[in-house]
Nucleic acid binder design. Structure first.
Lengths: 206, 206
DNA sequence: TGCTTTATTTCAAATTTTGAAACAGTTCAT
DNA sequence: ATGAACTGTTTCAAAATTTGAAATAAAGCA
């Protein structure tokens, strides 16, 4: 499953990025002796990694369920659709997908029987996508797994709170990045920012 | 930049997944009247979205810097490498990349002059990758942008703490998923879990 | 009716990801 | 030393995904 064989034990010791992380102790809200603040980039890196891991994990679960006609990210599309009918456009918004790409996945999902599609009668441009029974079943099975897996294990305290904070913070980041995107990047600070950069650029070239 | 034209205003109203989210108020640690707990799947979905957004954002920043010979995810590779030399294997561990894929990116990064590579003398299998001056410059420029952009804006309180929590929690999730991966999925609860699922499956088919 | 807009899909090209195999260098037991 | 077994990394071709630019098709409106 595209994990190299020697991926075994050495998992704890990955020193992140050399300069500003030292082993990420297990969340002790107060005891930490002032570690360098986490930046967007750090987080983005974390997000990338977690993302990859999750997809692999999901693929594993699918295999274990004997499901092999759908890809992990297509499963995510199913979850994004949720119960009920939605238009493709809504799906795009919910998941921040690119249209043509979503279309590609949707077609496959319909072909493999996870989705049903019909046109709205009021506006026949609207696609009205919804999970088929097969799709619902898969989603339910995975949700069940999800609920069952208490990955707080013996870990001390309110994981729930942390999950919530994480969720909200990610949303915030997403929002920020989205805003930057549509306003054309680094909002207010841009002027000063760029003058700095030019300085840096110049000095770096000497 | 692969954002559809109508991606403009409707950004606030995307109701997540219908059943258990209502608009994600701006992190008020205490005031929230008990919202449904966030699950792994929810988070994973959030991570996916944020991930996409970030990559788009990064692409934009690159464009603005006039850099067009490197892809956003390749930039992330640069960051993962950080300063100093590392072996490819270490890079794989740090970023959870798949070998052949990393190799592909590394080759391009060397070709486009962002990386330097040499073989270690002790073990000539080891690759010893490091940023070239060009690579360092890019990384610096982006770091600077990153530091400059205060995306806490006027927002109330300790964003830093939240970022930290998010980071740690993501790491935890990543760890969990990774463990599940190498131990073969849902650790302890698997037995009960699966019996439930079979029940579900059966009842769903009647 | 014609023109403009919105929703969605199609298509071909470009990029990325994969798995399997090939390579090359090390180690270790003999 | 010799060769079997192993580790680190790359290559390669096939598969999957992503992209952007049309194409389609249905509304909406002047």
């Amino acid at each position: 499953m595209h994990l190299k064989p020697h991926d075994g034990a050495r998992f704890l010791g990955n020193g992140f990025n050399g300069e500003h992380r030292d082993g990420a102790r297990r969340l002790e809200p107060e005891s930490t002796p002032a570690r360098a603040p986490v930046s967007q980039l750090d987080l983005a890196r974390m997000i990338e990694r977690a993302s990859r891991r999750f997809l692999d994990y999901l693929r594993l679960e699918l295999t274990k369920l004997g499901v092999d006609d759908i890809s992990p990210s297509q499963v995510m599309v199913l979850f994004t659709i949720g119960s009920g009918e939605i238009a493709v456009r809504d799906l795009l918004d919910r998941g921040h997908y690119v249209g043509s790409n979503a279309s590609y996945n949707l077609k496959q999902l319909v072909e493999s029987g996870y989705l049903e599609r019909g046109a709205s009668s009021r506006d026949r441009r609207l696609a009205r996508i919804s999970l088929s029974p097969k799709g619902q079943l898969l989603v339910e099975r995975l949700r069940l797994l999800d609920e069952t897996s208490q990955f707080g294990q013996g870990l001390d305290i309110d994981l729930d709170a942390d999950l919530q904070t994480t969720h909200d913070t990610l949303r915030r980041l997403e929002q920020w990045w989205g805003d930057a995107l549509r306003y054309g990047g680094i909002l207010l600070a841009s002027c000063t920012s760029y003058s700095f950069i030019v300085q840096d650029l110049v000095s770096s070239l000497t």
